[in-house]
Design a binder for these strands. Sequence first.
DNA 1: CAAATTATGGGTAACGTTACCCATCACCTG
DNA 2: CAGGTGATGGGTAACGTTACCCATAATTTG
Lengths: 361, 361
Amino acid sequence: MATGDGPRRVTIADVASHAKVSTTAVSKVIRNAYGVSPAMRERVSAAIAELGYRPHAAARAMRGRTYTIGLMLPHIRNPFFADILDGLMEQLADTDYQAILIQGGATRTTERRAVDALIDRQVDGIVMVGPLAPKTRLEEVARQTPTVVLGRHERSTVYDAVFDDDETGAELAVRHLIDLGHRHIVHITHQDDSVARPADLLHKIRSEAYERVMREHGLADEIAVATTYYTEEGGYQGALELLERSPCPTAIFAGADQAAFGALAAVHESGLSVPGDVSVVGYDNTRLAALPNISLTSIDQDGALMGRTSGRLLLERIEGRTSAVRFSVTPGLVQRRSTAPPPHSARAHASSGMDTANPPH
Amino acid sequence: MATGDGPRRVTIADVASHAKVSTTAVSKVIRNAYGVSPAMRERVSAAIAELGYRPHAAARAMRGRTYTIGLMLPHIRNPFFADILDGLMEQLADTDYQAILIQGGATRTTERRAVDALIDRQVDGIVMVGPLAPKTRLEEVARQTPTVVLGRHERSTVYDAVFDDDETGAELAVRHLIDLGHRHIVHITHQDDSVARPADLLHKIRSEAYERVMREHGLADEIAVATTYYTEEGGYQGALELLERSPCPTAIFAGADQAAFGALAAVHESGLSVPGDVSVVGYDNTRLAALPNISLTSIDQDGALMGRTSGRLLLERIEGRTSAVRFSVTPGLVQRRSTAPPPHSARAHASSGMDTANPPH
DNA sequence: CAAATTATGGGTAACGTTACCCATCACCTG
DNA sequence: CAGGTGATGGGTAACGTTACCCATAATTTG
């Protein structure tokens, strides 16, 4: 190995000899453990400051805590996750804990590798955002390390769950479109290779709520779902596919803002206007949705609150709580200019279908 | 501590006794070290597979490598960073290395804490994206751990540098606006609390190139810079401030797409149209810029390439390279519909052509 | 005032892995 | 065939920290 290691790292032993006390004493001070006199604390703290000592997290990992929380995100591109991270870091700010992120990717395999990496690095707690793994795997992880699962709905006794009421959120979106007078309402959902029970995955819940509400309003025949991905590219492809239907849909409910952005692009490229010809609703109410020239109607869920809560629950677990907690946030509709009543029956579309140019890359 | 640790972790000793060899032998096999016969390799591999052994990264950290690369990002909200991460992960995909991320935040203090956290966790290499720290600090880090600094321009003998030619990029942007006939061109830059030499920070380089090009075209008197942040909010505030000038600017060059998005919002809110009244140029060419109803002219820099290169350089350093490498990518202008000639004092060019940027009303 | 209790500090053995070195053994040389 | 040379496998001591336990001093109790 080539690490031209500079001056040797300051260790607990250096601090101990400098302060003329034992390493045990130093360890107790830095951990705020029981059995240290104020004088001792003072003395050791001074030595620590003087030498610029920092505990070696990797060494701690062998014996005690690492003061590290691992956050597994499917992908960092989705700005909604930034809200979650902000919340988590806010919660951790006044503690000794550090958050590290790892990208889980789009498949169970890559996700597993990522979470294993977290476990191998001996993090004290794990937050998994929208994991694909089956419940058994989640519980296996949770038995090794305190875990919060964010975005899944199943009930477990070994991990805590934080989620949005996706059922209600999707219902708000579809109802909003129906109330505006739409009937040809289509949906873009997310494809995954998960083996989890569909009822526990947020995208399944959203898409099933879509179908349910449609049926409840006598629109069973209008149900059409494109199964692509909660990404721009996925939304773009899904919308292109759905816009070829006849009659052409007048409203698209995308399961995530990212997908809605792609859908907007597809609508525009098809020569149709939003919301003149097609209304679009997203989910997550990311900041981008509020930009005036996107102005996307979306379902708001409080990502920062979810992040803060995840952090809090993890700290509680680390401190010893063993009972499982479920925390649910309530979504709300934020109406913007991407939704409007459908065009009147006798309307003339610009020729649809033709210009399938380049996807936004 | 409450970790209800499940079954004890499989260790190298378990593998050794199961395969009836020494722990040393197992260690050699998993590290691909010299001195193992094919038979031995076979035998140990079988035992590893059978027991589902995974090396304990935290324990490895005490002796050898952790096979971990740490990526420090100022903030994950900027989608440009996702490109960098994609590149880095692509480069690492076929190796044993894992990437972990850490958010550095907006100040030197938080950044320092983040990078220290990486060092304490004994990562084998660090990529720092747009760090605020002074060069001395970067070199201090690099002496402890192989380091790539991404986005800064200074020359160092202890770390590798990967960056975009920001000078050229900014020049492309400003020239483009000048060529279109603009004179009242303003700039939005990023504020930081760095103590680095201004000439080494990418936002300084961009803003100085803006001023230089303006001067070279006899537009010294038109120079106006808002110093906010490379964020949506920053771009919004900066644009509001700049739009109050008299005469009103006809073009805004934002130092980053994120800021440009905010600027677009501000322009719209001021009742002005893009590009009818005001042209806007961004930097980074993030995917969002390509969305039809944003359609932002931007300077493209290949983030994935920068990420891949960072990974490669780090692996080389870990393998023993000690000389310093500098890698520069060349930016290019991607013209979209957010830029057009300035409105003419008295003429009937009446928003010719592209009215596209009108928000869906 | 002796005995019991509490408060405080330190010694030591791990934790799981790897670097370094040594012991063996088979195979070449000349 | 003695001595040398690789190739292969294993023993052992760290790495920096903390949990557990014990020793001592200080205080309270009966």
